[in-house]
Amino acid sequence: DETGKFLVLALYDYQEKSPREVTMKKGDILTLLNSTNKDWWKVEVNGRQGFVPAAYVKFL
């Protein structure tokens, strides 16, 4: 149950560059965990948590 969690859509592919980031593919649906930083949002994708560039995702 994803109640209270926001979902975001990956607009572009992103390859993680550090262990704190996660890789996503364009079209992936991600669970948004934290968006307090304007540049990097914490998400969960494929069972992994990490950061992606905020400009690469949008709210569903």
Rank of each mutant, 00 (worst) to 15 (best):
A55R: 13
R20S: 14
D39L: 14
D39Y: 15
E16H: 08
T23A: 07
A55K: 14
L7K: 11
F6W: 14
M24A: 02
G4F: 12
Y12W: 11
L30A: 09
L30T: 01
L9F: 10
L11F: 04
T31G: 06
L33T: 04
Q15V: 15
L32F: 05
L32S: 02
F6A: 12
Y56K: 08
K26F: 05
L7D: 05
P19K: 09
P53N: 02
L32Y: 03
D13E: 06
L32D: 00
V8Y: 09
G47K: 05
F59E: 11
W40K: 02
E44V: 07
L33D: 01
N46K: 10
K42D: 04
S35T: 11
D13G: 05
Q15N: 13
S35D: 12
R20G: 15
V43I: 08
N37A: 08
Q15P: 06
L60C: 10
Q15M: 13
Y12R: 13
E16P: 14
E44P: 00
K25I: 08
E44C: 09
W41P: 03
V43K: 00
D39T: 12
I29R: 06
F59Q: 11
K17N: 12
L32V: 13
E16C: 10
D28L: 04
V43Q: 00
Y56R: 05
T36M: 11
V52Y: 01
V22D: 00
F6H: 14
E16V: 05
V52T: 01
L60T: 08
P53T: 02
V43T: 01
V52R: 00
V22F: 09
D39W: 13
G4H: 15
E44Q: 10
N37V: 05
Q49N: 08
V43R: 00
K25G: 05
T31A: 08
V43C: 04
Q49D: 06
N37G: 11
F59W: 09
L30V: 08
W41G: 00
K5I: 13
M24Y: 02
D39F: 14
Y12H: 13
Q49L: 08
K25N: 09
D28V: 04
D28F: 04
Y56A: 12
L11R: 07
L60K: 05
E21W: 03
T3K: 14
Y56H: 08
Y56E: 03
G50C: 02
W40P: 00
A10W: 03
D1L: 12
S35C: 13
L11S: 04
Q15C: 10
D13W: 03
I29Y: 06
Q49C: 09
V43D: 00
V52G: 00
A10G: 03
A10V: 08
L7T: 08
K26D: 02
N46G: 12
V22M: 09
L33H: 05
V52H: 00
Q49P: 07
R20I: 14
E44M: 09
N37C: 08
E2F: 05
N46P: 05
V8A: 10
V8T: 04
P19V: 09
P19Q: 09
W41T: 04
V43P: 00
L11Q: 07
D13F: 04
S35F: 10
A55C: 13
F59M: 14
F6G: 12
K26E: 08
G27E: 02
N34E: 15
E21C: 06
L32I: 07
V57G: 00
G27Q: 02
V45D: 04
T23G: 08
E2S: 14
T3L: 14
T36N: 13
G47L: 04
L7A: 06
L32H: 02
L33I: 15
R20D: 14
G47W: 02
K58C: 14
Y12P: 00
